[in-house]
Write a protein that binds this DNA or RNA. Structure first.
Length: 186
DNA sequence: CCCTGATTCGC
DNA sequence: GCGAATCAGG
């Protein structure tokens, strides 16, 4: 795949946003994370932390807004909706009846997660889930457009590769990335 | 094992 | 220029 101006621009934006190389690769499509990293270097984009001082302190991917049109007067309170549903599904020869409680915390509306990469979703409804589908909930559980990611999850995780990362990691994994580069070189 | 970015080097 | 392979670290 060619590095068109468009794709390069997207790369620059996503990299500046603090997405990892693999996330960017997934978003661009058709390239590996190595390709992304290679391109980043070739473009001389600022590494995650390099040049001179090895210690990187200020890595705040959150500081996106410049002229942030922060919502005027929202109650600074997140609403929490929970729904409990009972679902039955076959597991081997038996039928498992389980109660699934879903809690969704809704920020007042803004909070567009530009960092989240979701390669695909099959928009499965609750009853369509199987042992191997990603159970990452999407949308409002109380609305009828609620669905699950449904991507291939494998058998060891309830989520697909990407949602597993979201579920098990604090979103911000990039801490000390380049400390070894300067040090290890001999 | 999963992941991260960095570097090398044949193409 | 490109990116797979490899490296170094978490």
């Amino acid at each position: 795949m060619n590095w068109t101006d468009e794709r390069v621009e997207k790369l620059k934006r996503l990299w500046a946003d603090g997405l990892s190389a693999s996330q960017i690769a997934a978003q661009l499509g058709g390239v590996s994370r190595n390709a992304v990293i290679g391109k980043v270097h070739r473009l001389n984009l600022p590494g995650r932390a390099k040049a001179g001082g090895a210690t990187q302190a200020a890595s705040r991917p959150q500081a996106r807004n410049t002229s942030a049109p922060r919502a005027p007067n929202f109650a600074a309170r997140a609403t929490t909706a929970s729904a409990t549903r009972t679902v039955t599904r076959p597991v081997g020869a038996t039928v498992v009846k389980e109660e699934i409680e879903i809690e969704v915390t809704q920020q007042p509306e803004f909070e567009a997660p530009a960092n989240v990469v979701v390669p695909m979703s099959r928009r499965l409804s609750l009853t369509d889930l199987t042992e191997r589908t990603c159970k990452w909930p999407m949308g409002d559980p109380l609305k009828d457009d609620f669905h699950f990611c449904g991507a291939e999850s494998g058998e060891s995780s309830p989520y697909c590769r990407y949602h597993a990362r979201l579920a098990y990691q604090p979103v911000n994994e990039r801490r000390k990335a380049a400390s070894m580069a300067a040090a290890a070189r001999a």
